[in-house]
Design a protein around this nucleic acid. Structure first.
Lengths: 248, 248
DNA sequence: TGAATATTTGGACGACAGTACAAATATGGT
DNA sequence: ACCATATTTGTACTGTCGTCCAAATATTCA
């Protein structure tokens, strides 16, 4: 790990009181999720995780075989409930009559489950989404597969629902704007203190409620934007930088 | 680096043919920038960089002392020109008469220099901004200092300029929306292939020109959005979910 | 209970990390 | 040519990494 962990209180002490099950596996998962979502995958070692969970490094290997396997299991835990919740809210949102309200509900259906996970209520959804944000930047191969398999359906459903409500806007534009939504969401979870700093304290970046409201408001407005009727036809010559090569 | 380097024992021979100036320092900087912006800081080793630059690992230490020092120098190279360009374009933008055009110009003044660096024309700006995006997710300590020192001024200038053009919108809201802009920008540079995939090929995420146009259009619309209360005064209950809890 | 199984432990392995350093070499001014 | 300096090289040091494994311990069920 890059910084010293300062010994966060993830100790599995006092376990025998209520539950007869120590369930080291769960403790390891929780510790890994917390550490990965804070420092990133590459910066956290298996030993860091084991120590935070009060377990032996060998135990991690026993339960999850590899470090990638551990990450995979974390994703498996959250993806199902989160996307199920999104589907429910999206179906609800589609039935809203007023266009403006419907759009807002659709965006909310996508954003809300990213902050509140179904199973874990203590900021679990936020933690997992922050993890997703970090992983998208670090570019882990295991994650890339999961995303294409699991999240693309949800994203398509979002875009389709929006397109239904805004049929006059090209689908391609909506893909872009939905992409920007996810980027804004990720960035807010990764660097919330930046909002507090730039607003000189008048906004709290770590307040999920505020973040959601601002994000929904901005996104609904962006989605409804018409094409610019090209006051400047093509970006200036300086914007010649088109890396034809593949990124990532 | 994540993948195995295959350990080719071949040495960088035949270097003295054309140019009489090896300038290994520059080669190391270029290689490090390329590798860091592709795989992240933690995933790339000093040895990876040295090999990519055709240099000896000790040479990296000689020129930049530490790995962090190398990263620091990369930032130093780009921050000055990029922010100077932003200031120029921003001053230009402020003088535009029409409100809509002015807003657009202001946003462009912030976005364009992120894609086209002053010195390097072959996608250098894009590469550096992608690096910044990855670093913001990985959370390096050295970078955090640079950002607070160097980029906050630029961000404040952007927000102030927008606030001048949209005085009826609370500054706090503009901070949020500017934050979303940066998040969207970062995410587009980090995962451009996602746009191509979700649009089923009808949009090219790696095309900087398109990305800029879409980003500017969406951002201008988002910036002008009024509070949700104003246009539709009806409080709704459709999106039943209730956010309100703190995160992190 | 005792046997079968599941889990935990502590240590080991080879690979690779960042950095340091003396020797070798290249460079530039006189 | 010479010397002083700048750079490059090869290697070595000390950690830490992910993973493995045999022994120890806990758990479950006949």
């Amino acid at each position: 790990m890059v910084r010293k962990p300062a010994r966060s209180g993830i100790k599995p002490d006092a376990k025998a009181t209520s539950t007869r099950k120590p369930n080291m596996r769960e403790a390891i998962l929780a510790a890994a999720e917390e550490l990965f979502s804070t420092y990133g995958f590459n910066a956290v070692s298996v030993r860091d995780i084991a120590q935070a969970a009060g377990a032996n490094p060998g135990s991690v290997t026993y339960h999850f075989k590899t470090k990638d396997g551990l990450l995979l299991e974390i994703y498996r835990r959250h993806c199902g409930p989160m996307n199920r919740r999104r589907s429910e809210l999206l179906a609800e949102a589609r039935r809203v009559r007023d266009l403006q309200d419907r759009l807002e509900a659709i965006v909310r259906a996508y954003v809300l489950p990213a902050f509140t996970s179904g199973s874990d209520l203590a900021g679990g959804g936020t933690r997992f989404t922050r993890l997703r944000a970090i992983m998208s930047a670090e570019g882990n191969e295991v994650v890339r597969k999961i995303i294409a398999q699991t999240f693309d359906d949800t994203s398509h459903a979002l875009i389709d629902a929006i397109h239904e409500s805004l049929p006059h806007i090209p689908r391609t534009d909506l893909v872009w704007r939905g992409h920007f939504l996810l980027g804004a969401l990720y960035y807010t979870l990764v660097t919330p203190e930046r909002v507090s700093r730039l607003s000189r304290g008048s906004a709290d970046g770590t307040n999920a409620g505020h973040a959601i409201e601002e994000l929904v408001r901005a996104t609904v407005a962006a989605l409804q934007a018409a094409r610019l009727d090209q006051p400047t036809p093509v970006p200036r010559k300086t914007a010649s930088a088109n890396p034809g090569r593949a990124l990532t």
